[in-house]
Design a protein around this nucleic acid. Structure first.
Lengths: 142, 142
DNA sequence: CTTGACCTTGCCATCATGGGAAGCCTTATC
DNA sequence: GATAAGGCTTCCCATGATGGCAAGGTCAAG
């Protein structure tokens, strides 16, 4: 199987397959006499594993660990579960950060009448800095 | 005010202040005879505006628009509100993507007993790809 | 005058991905 | 056999926002 076929079969672009190879995430593929990479079903399966892991938000660094566990028949499922739980924690943290941003924005947007007039509480808030007048003056307070 | 003081006063690092200047987000600061950048309170306020906008997740590209509206005394608050609502939509979209990842991971983690044994539904799922056994066989046609 | 803290520019790295160029290989068609 | 299309190869560049480091100039206190 050529890299293009492997890409279609795995959902990983040819570009990324080469990149993963260059960084050592996957072993170097075999080559034809003329230098084309060749992929077996096993390798395509590994690529799909990577794709799926990326879809779940794992950074490549963690996928390296996941792949190692995948290949290790004497692994302990606790190790896999820990990676998954860490990933859940990371996602939860990012989600709550974004939720906080969204709540603030929603609040501001609700206060803005959104018409042709220039008065806008959103701009006022942005101009005043985080949570109002906190730490606004360690300089010439003119 | 030197760049270091402006950085402390605005919450934007000196590095980023120079970067924003180089990209044209902010106008070039004045200079002392020896080449040091000098900042007025007005400029620090603009930096705080940027910082606050970044904290709400706006990309620099959008901050450019926000700054333009901020400076425009004949702006229409509707334009500001639209930017805010777009940002809310973007955040909501990302949050729901991450939430979906998290739900899947939680489901998988719940199914994994997480002990010393190697059997692990998480790895099985990752190995099977999205929604199972779809397109697993376009194999060795060569 | 020396020392240390601060400023300047410039380059490199991140993280995962896409784009493009220049050139070789393969396959199909005439 | 020649030619065209399309796939492959490598290499370089760009993203977005940020940090780090290095070499060298500047300023202020001692």
């Amino acid at each position: 199987m050529n890299i293009g076929e492997a890409a279609k079969a795995s959902g990983v672009s040819a570009k990324m397959i080469r990149y993963y190879e260059s960084t050592g995430l996957i072993p170097a593929a075999g080559r034809t006499g003329s230098g084309y990479r060749v992929y077996s079903d096993t390798e395509v399966q590994m690529l799909r594993f990577i794709r799926r892991s990326r879809d779940l938000g794992f950074p490549v660094e963690k996928i390296e660990e996941l792949l190692a566990l995948w290949r290790d028949r004497s692994r302990q499922s606790a190790d896999v579960k820990r990676l998954a739980l860490d990933q859940i924690d990371g996602l939860a943290r990012k989600i709550s950060e974004m939720q906080a941003m969204m709540d603030t924005l929603r609040h501001l947007a609700d206060a803005c009448c959104g018409d042709h007039r220039p008065d806008c509480p959103i701009l006022v808030d942005l101009g005043n800095g985080p949570a109002q007048g906190q730490a606004t003056a360690r300089t010439a307070r003119r």
